[in-house]
């Protein structure tokens, strides 16, 4: 790991003011230190967010508020999260290991970098790291990579589980920077790669995620997260599905479906949602909706299996709700 300075501001304005070229904020550090050990990230200084009081977890009838520095393990175990937003708890518990969840923060988890093997190996070119360098993944080892929303420059996937649940539950990301606070729906937070795959979110370099807000809803209460992977635990998703239903007298009044492991952002499956609303909450409806969840998929060569696997994850997750 290259040498760097450690800056330890005591409040949010000081942390924002300390940001400058070549510097990075560090929260849990579980991803950033891995990237630094591989020389993928070589910051001149880290700005330590530990002293910022941003780790609260609050819930009332209107919704859930997660301080960005709340630990993944604490959010997963919170009684209100488990009862009212089960997909969030399930997504977090399916992520990483108990040790990493004790360290990682929910804000940091939104910003985990892709696990594309070429991105993480400095010996390979990567359009994310160096615009125009080329993408060996497109004709290479792309089994783990995107089937939706990719471009000719990049087919990386976002690796985190939490954002998929947050997309299904229509969360909002609250950010603070030198010019104040702004709130962005999670569906607008991530950017597809296009010709600028290095730009992954709308977060500016000198902005800090301060909070994640999740509105309370009948469908959030009846939500689930299903993750399918190469081993039983401590592995990234091949595909994942976060689903939520509001069922009244056996009929679906509202539905949310989001896919993980298939794109650079959590993928809202609108066609599947539309196919659910107004229908009976049964296996036939779920199968029909699941078949529409991957509409527009364009596999890269070695990841064609993900199309049907994602559909089955949706069907299984929906089935778990009734």
């Amino acid at each position: 790991m290259q040498a760097f300075d450690l800056i330890r501001p005591t409040d949010l304005p000081a942390a924002i003011a300390a940001m400058g070229k070549g510097r990075r904020f560090i929260a849990g550090g579980t991803d950033l230190l891995q990237l630094m050990k591989e020389n993928i990230e070589t910051p001149s200084a880290l700005i330590d967010l530990d002293a910022l009081a941003l780790d609260g977890i609050g819930a009332d009838g209107g919704g859930l508020m997660l301080g960005a520095l709340a630990r993944m393990a604490d959010v997963a175990a919170h009684p209100a999260v488990r009862a009212e937003y089960p997909a969030i708890s399930q997504a977090l518990l399916s992520a990483a290991s108990p040790q990493v969840r004790n360290m990682g923060t929910v804000g940091g988890n939104l910003l985990q970098r892709t696990r594309c093997v070429y991105f993480r190996d400095a010996a390979f070119p990567c359009n994310k790291r160096t615009p125009g360098a080329g993408c060996p993944a497109i004709a290479g080892q792309n089994r783990m990579l995107a089937i939706l929303g990719g471009s000719a420059d990049c087919i990386a996937t976002h690796p985190s589980d939490l954002p998929v649940a947050l997309a299904a539950l229509e969360a909002t990301v609250v950010m603070q920077g030198p010019n104040g606070t702004r709130r962005v729906p999670i569906s607008d937070f991530y950017l597809l790669p296009g010709t600028t795959p290095g730009q992954e979110t709308v977060l500016a370099p000198d902005e800090i995620i301060t909070m994640i807000e999740v509105p309370a809803s009948a469908w959030a209460r009846r939500s689930a997260y299903v993750k399918l992977r190469d081993r039983a635990s401590f592995e990234f998703a091949l595909v994942a599905a976060a689903v939520a239903l509001d069922v009244r007298d056996g009929t679906i009044a509202a539905a949310r479906v989001a896919l993980g492991g298939v794109a650079a952002k959590p993928w809202r499956a609108m066609a599947a949602e539309a196919a659910l609303v107004g229908q009976k909450a049964d296996g036939a409806t779920f199968a029909q909706a699941a078949a529409l969840a991957t509409e527009g998929a364009r596999p890269a060569g070695r990841n064609g299996f993900k199309v049907r696997l994602a559909q089955r994850a949706v069907a299984r997750a929906l089935g778990a709700l009734v």
Binding site: G29, T30, L33, N102, M103
Partner: peptide, 9 residues
């Protein structure tokens, strides 16, 4: 709480 010492400064 259990943590990974390799990812802790």
């Amino acid at each position: 709480r259990r943590v990974n010492a390799c990812l802790t400064l």
